[in-house]
Design a binder for these strands. Structure first.
Length: 510
RNA sequence: GGCGCUUUCAUCUAACGGUUAGGAUACAAGAUUCUCAAUCUUGGCAUACGGGUUCGAUUCCCGUAGGCGCUACCA
C-alpha cells in the first residue's frame, strides 16, 4: 500500500456520533470502514461521544449506539464505556480542555470574541443576500475586533453571552489531501469565521472539539461521510492555527448512502415508505413515542448487514461478495472506495441474508428458529427443529419465513388453499387419496427412502398419473401446493399423523 | 444563489489508454418429469452529452447537463 499509512505512527481511528437519536445505517457503514481500517493496520478504534449540542441531546441514544455495535459485532478498543487512557471520551466532560485551547487561539489573535446575537445575525442574513461572517463583514459586526478591549471585558464581566469565532485569512489556497478523492483545493475566502465556542453552555462546536480531540487522542486517520468535505479546509486551517500540521490526520471522505429510489440521501422516511429499517436496532423515541424498526428486530443477521454495507462504496477488486468480517479486514482498501453516492438497494440485502442463512449450520439456524416456533405455540426437540430447518431453509430470506414454510410440519393445516385445490383436487382425487391411505395403512416404515419406492411402485401398479396422485395427497397434508419432497414430510410427521390428515381432508373436501 | 464532490446495465460495481465493457442483485425464459421454492443454464440491459489530447479513450483534460453535499451559536 502506498502512503496511506505513515509508518512511524500507530494507526488510530475513531467513530464519533452525536447522541441525538438512533444510529443511522449510514453511520454504521462509516463505523464499519473505520473498524476495518483499524483492524487491518493493527491500530486502535476509538468510540467518542460528541455531545456538544445540549439542545439536541436525546437520552438513551448513547446506550442505543453501544448496543447496536455490540449486536453488529463491531468492537472498540477505547472510548465511552470501553475505557482507555485518552479520556474522557465524552465531549461534555472535556470542557476545560476546550476552554484552554480556545484561549490559546484567542491569545494568539487567531480567534476573536463576537457578541452578535442569533437574532441579529438572522436579521443581517435577511437583509444582505449571501451574508457571511468573514473578512468582508467582520469589521461591521459587534466583536472584539471592532470594540475596545475594556468594553469587551465589561460585557463578558456583565454576563453577556458571546461566541468565539475563528479568524480566517482570506485569499489562501487550502489543500485537503483526501485518501479517496485526491487533492481538493479551496480558497479560504469562501470560508466563514466559524463559531468555535459558545459561552452559553461553555461548550465548543463540532469543529473545535473535533480537531482538539483528534489531536489529543492521536487520531491518525479521519474516515467520515462526504458531508464533511466542505468543512475539511476549515479543519486543516485549525490544525495549522494550533501548530499541529505535522501530525494532522489523513482524511478520507466517504460517499453517501442514497434513497433506493427518487432523489436525495437515505432517510428514515424511505424505510417507513418502502418497508425496510434504516436503523440497526428498533428505536423508541422517548419524546414522541414513535417506534422505528430495526434490522435486529426484522430478523436480519448482523453479518449479512455488515457484508452488504461494506459493498456499498467499496469492493475487494474481484468478484467476491460474500465475506466474513475477518475477510473484509484483510481485503479492505480505502483507495478502492468509490466516490459517488450509492443507492441503498435493500433487495440485495435480502439476498445477502438468504446467503448467510444458507451458509449457517442447521443447528445454528434451528436455535434462531426456536423462538419463532415458541411464539407459534410449538415446542419441539432440537433434533426435530434442526430436521425441519434442513428441509426448508434454502427457500427463505429471513428466519421468521421458516415458519411460513414449515408450519405444516408441526401442526395440521387449518384450511386448504383455493388455488391449490382448484389445480390438484380434481374429481378422482378423493378416490386415489382414499386408496393411497389404504396402502399406507399397510406400511410400517415411514422412512422416506424406504417408503418412496414402495408408494411409487404402488402408483405404477395402479397405472395412476404420479403427479395427480402425489399433489392431491400433498394438499391433504400441507393444505397447499408447497413444501419439500412429500416423503420428507410424511417421514417427519409420521404414519399416524399422515393418515389422520389425509382422512380429515377426505371428509372436509368430499 | 455561492462553493465543493460526483457521473459504466434498473441497482451495487469491475475494467489503474488497447477487453466481444466482466460479476452480482432484480427481471425474463428453460431445466429439474410430485407442488412451491431453492439450485443450475440461458437471455435482455450500461460507458450522460459535446469538445479536445492520443495511433487508440469507459479510462486523461475542458465544457454542458444530471445527481449529491455544504452554505447554523447542528453534527
Amino acid at each position: 500500500m502506498s502512503d496511506t499509512v505513515a509508518k512511524e505512527r500507530r494507526v488510530r481511528v475513531r467513530f464519533a456520533p452525536s447522541p441525538t437519536g438512533p444510529l443511522h445505517i449510514g453511520g454504521v457503514r462509516t463505523a464499519l470502514y473505520n473498524y476495518l481500517f483499524a483492524r487491518q493496520h493493527d491500530g486502535d478504534f476509538i468510540f467518542r461521544i460528541e455531545d456538544t449540542d445540549t439542545n439536541r441531546f436525546v437520552p438513551g441514544a448513547e446506550d442505543y449506539i453501544i448496543e447496536a455495535f455490540r449486536w453488529l459485532g463491531i468492537t472498540f478498543d477505547e472510548g465511552v464505556s470501553f475505557g482507555g487512557k485518552y479520556g474522557p471520551y465524552r465531549q461534555s466532560e472535556r470542557r476545560e480542555i476546550y476552554r484552554r485551547h480556545v484561549d490559546a487561539l484567542l491569545d494568539a489573535g487567531k480567534a476573536y470574541i463576537a457578541f452578535d446575537t442569533p437574532d441579529e445575525l438572522e436579521k443581517r442574513r435577511a437583509e444582505i443576500p449571501n451574508f457571511q461572517y468573514d473578512a468582508t463583514t467582520r469589521l461591521s459586526m459587534r466583536n472584539s475586533l471592532t470594540m475596545p478591549a475594556d468594553e469587551v471585558r465589561a460585557l463578558i464581566g456583565g454576563g453577556i453571552q458571546y461566541v468565539v469565532r475563528f479568524l480566517i485569512e482570506p485569499g489562501r489556497e487550502v489543500v485537503v489531501d483526501d485518501l479517496i478523492r485526491g487533492r481538493v483545493v479551496i480558497n479560504s475566502s469562501i470560508l466563514d469565521d466559524k463559531v468555535l465556542f459558545k459561552s452559553a453552555d461553555e461548550l465548543p462546536t463540532y469543529h473545535l472539539a473535533n480537531i482538539v480531540d483528534d489531536h489529543l487522542m492521536e487520531v491518525t486517520h479521519v474516515i467520515r461521510g462526504e458531508e464533511w468535505l466542505p468543512s475539511a479546509p476549515l479543519h486543516v486551517l485549525l490544525y495549522e492555527a494550533f501548530g499541529w500540521q505535522d501530525t494532522m490526520p489523513r482524511f478520507a471522505h466517504l460517499p453517501l448512502l442514497l434513497k433506493p429510489e427518487g432523489n436525495g440521501k437515505l432517510s428514515k422516511r424511505d424505510g417507513d415508505r418502502l418497508g425496510f429499517p434504516v436503523f440497526p436496532l428498533e428505536w423508541h423515541d422517548p419524546k414522541t413515542g414513535e417506534v422505528s424498526s430495526g434490522y435486529r428486530e426484522k430478523d436480519y443477521l448482523p453479518d449479512a448487514v455488515l457484508n452488504f454495507l461494506a459493498l456499498l462504496g467499496w469492493n475487494p477488486g474481484d468478484d467476491t461478495e460474500i465475506m466474513s468480517l475477518d475477510r473484509m479486514v484483510s481485503l479492505f482498501n480505502l483507495e478502492k472506495c468509490s466516490k459517488a453516492g450509492a443507492r441503498f438497494n435493500y433487495q440485495k440485502l435480502s439476498w445477502f441474508n438468504h446467503e448467510y442463512i444458507l451458509r449457517k449450520d442447521d443447528s445454528e439456524v434451528a436455535e434462531l428458529f426456536r423462538p419463532v416456533l415458541e411464539r407459534n405455540g410449538v415446542t419441539e426437540t432440537p433434533e426435530r427443529i434442526e430436521k425441519a430447518v434442513s428441509l426448508v431453509k434454502s427457500r427463505v430470506n429471513f428466519i421468521h419465513e421458516l415458519w411460513d414454510n414449515s408450519y405444516y410440519l408441526f401442526r395440521a393445516p387449518d384450511g386448504y388453499d383455493d388455488k391449490s385445490l382448484k389445480k390438484w383436487w380434481k374429481e378422482d382425487a378423493p378416490k386415489t387419496t382414499a386408496e393411497l391411505c389404504g396402502f399406507l395403512e399397510t406400511q410400517d416404515d415411514f422412512n422416506a427412502e424406504t417408503l418412496e419406492p414402495k408408494v411409487m411402485d404402488w402408483i405404477a401398479s395402479k397405472e395412476y398419473p404420479v403427479g395427480k396422485v402425489m399433489n392431491a395427497f400433498r394438499v391433504t397434508l400441507v393444505g397447499a401446493a408447497m413444501g419439500p419432497q412429500i416423503f420428507a414430510i410424511t417421514e417427519f410427521i409420521g404414519k399416524e399423523e399422515t393418515l389422520r390428515r389425509a382422512r380429515r381432508a377426505l371428509e372436509v373436501l368430499s
